[in-house]
């Protein structure tokens, strides 16, 4: 396996095809699609009921009025449709069954193949957000911000998604060294949901805790785009908020590259 291939000229088309195949694969499980959307609806109903009950008997916290918190939680749930996907699972799977060796012999850049596959899967679920959102509107009223804010939100969401992608890739890369990481992935997902502000907006956390959590990469995944959406982060702070997200993306992107290189080398030195 230590043969050095002369790299063919890079072409994007094969990776687009990989993504399409992954998308088609996801679409075959129609029953899953249906139950997924149904589950979003029930959870939107629950979140509305819970927040209404909380705001009904207490003085509303000044940070977020009821309509903003319902908007926040609904958008967070829709975001989780794509954020909670184990995008690079195929890396772990092909390490488990050894097929990664074959992947290396193919004329392609292996990490790009994994990324394309994950992206296809995610795009399919991103499309599902549209019917889920449309149906959710029967249960909740969602604030729609100005076009400018929406655009910044989308940029921030993309940055947050990419940070999440890197964390997922790094976790799956650990499969080069240790094979059983399912539990660790669940643990990271739950911790992200809590300290990233998906379950409860970070602005409702006690102040001391908040100051720590906002600078972590988990906040970059959920909290930052969501707080931009509901207008809690004003335009004057956009640069700082997006800058911090970009910082985490670069840092974790660098870690991903290093992990991949070390992992791939280890694979080669073991003889495939």
């Amino acid at each position: 396996m230590s043969v050095v291939f002369s790299r063919p000229r890079f072409r994007l088309e094969p990776y687009v095809e990989f993504a399409k195949v992954a998308m088609a694969k996801e679409a075959t499980y129609r029953f899953d699609v249906f139950t997924n959307i149904a589950s979003v609806l029930v959870r939107v109903y629950i979140l509305r009921t819970v927040w209404v009950a909380l705001y009904a008997h207490n003085a509303a916290p000044s940070e977020l009025p009821l309509h903003a918190v319902i908007t926040y939680s609904t958008i967070a749930m829709l975001m989780s449709l794509v954020m909670d996907i184990d995008q690079t699972r195929i890396l772990r799977d092909s390490l488990h069954d050894g097929s990664i060796v074959l992947d290396f012999t193919k004329p392609m850049r292996v990490p790009l193949y994994f990324i394309a596959n994950g992206t296809g899967e995610v795009l399919f679920h991103a499309v599902l957000m549209i019917p889920a959102l449309a149906l959710a509107l029967f249960f909740v009223h969602i604030d729609v911000p100005s076009f400018g804010t929406l655009a910044v939100f989308l940029v921030s969401f993309l940055l947050g998604y990419s940070v999440g992608f890197c964390i997922n890739f790094i976790l799956n890369c650990t499969a080069f060294w240790t094979l059983e990481i399912t539990a660790v992935q669940f643990i990271v997902t739950w911790i992200t949901d809590l300290v990233g502000g998906e379950l409860v907006p970070l602005v409702l956390f006690p102040a001391a805790l908040q100051n720590v959590l906002v600078v972590l990469p988990f906040a970059a995944m959920f909290s930052t785009p969501l707080l931009i959406y509901v207008g809690h982060i004003p335009p004057a702070q956009y640069a700082g908020a997006l800058g911090l997200q970009a910082f985490w993306l670069i840092a974790l992107g660098a870690v991903s590259v290093v992990m991949w290189r070390l992992g791939a080398r280890r694979l080669v030195s073991q003889g495939g």
Partner: peptide
């Protein structure tokens, strides 16, 4: 902590 109680 943010809201002292939920439906009592």
């Amino acid at each position: 902590t943010a809201f002292p109680s939920m439906n009592g």
